[in-house]
Amino acid sequence: MMSSFDRFLHLFWRSIDTLMAFLLAMMVVLVFANVVLRYGFSSGIRSSVELSRLGFVWIVMLGAAVTLRHGEHLSINDVAEALLPKLVPFFRRVSGIVILVSVSMLFWGSTKQVLANWNNISQLTGLPKSLLYVPASFSGLLMGLITLRQLLSLDTTKQRESDS
C-alpha cells in the first residue's frame, strides 16, 4: 500500500520528468526552427540561443536531483569496499554530510542570485536573469531533502540491525 505521502512523491517526481522532457523538446524545436528559418526564410528567432541555454540549465539542475535520488551520480565504491569494508557505513555518512553541505551552499548562493537578479532583464527575451538561478536553488533544496532522508534512513537501518 502506498501512503498518500508516497503517492505525492511519486507524482512529484513524475512531473519533474515531464517538465524536463517538455523543456528538452522545446530546445529541440527552438534550435531546429532557427536553422530552418535562417537558411530557408532569411529570418530567425532572436531569443532561441538564450531560451535554450535557460532550458538547458533547468534540465541539468533538475536532472542532477533525479540522479541523486536514484544514487546514480558517478562514484568509485569498490576501493573502499575492498580495502576498508568495516568503515564503509561511516564513509557513507561522511559522503552524505559532504553532499548536504555542498547542496546547502548551492541553495544559499543561488537563492541570493535569484533575489539579486529580478531586476536584471534580458533584452532579447524580456525575462529576468533570476530564472537561471531558480532551478539551482530549487535543486539544491531537493538534493538537501533527498540526502537528509537518506542519512536518516541510514540511521534507522542501523537501529533495526542492532535490534535484531
Partner: peptide
C-alpha cells in the same frame, strides 16, 4: 545581444543571427 543593434540590422534587411 543588444536589441538596438538587432533592430538596426533587421531594418537594413540583413538577417541578424545569435551565435
Amino acid at each position: 545581444n543588444s536589441k538596438a543593434l538587432n533592430d538596426l540590422f533587421q531594418a537594413l534587411d540583413a538577417n541578424p543571427q545569435q551565435i
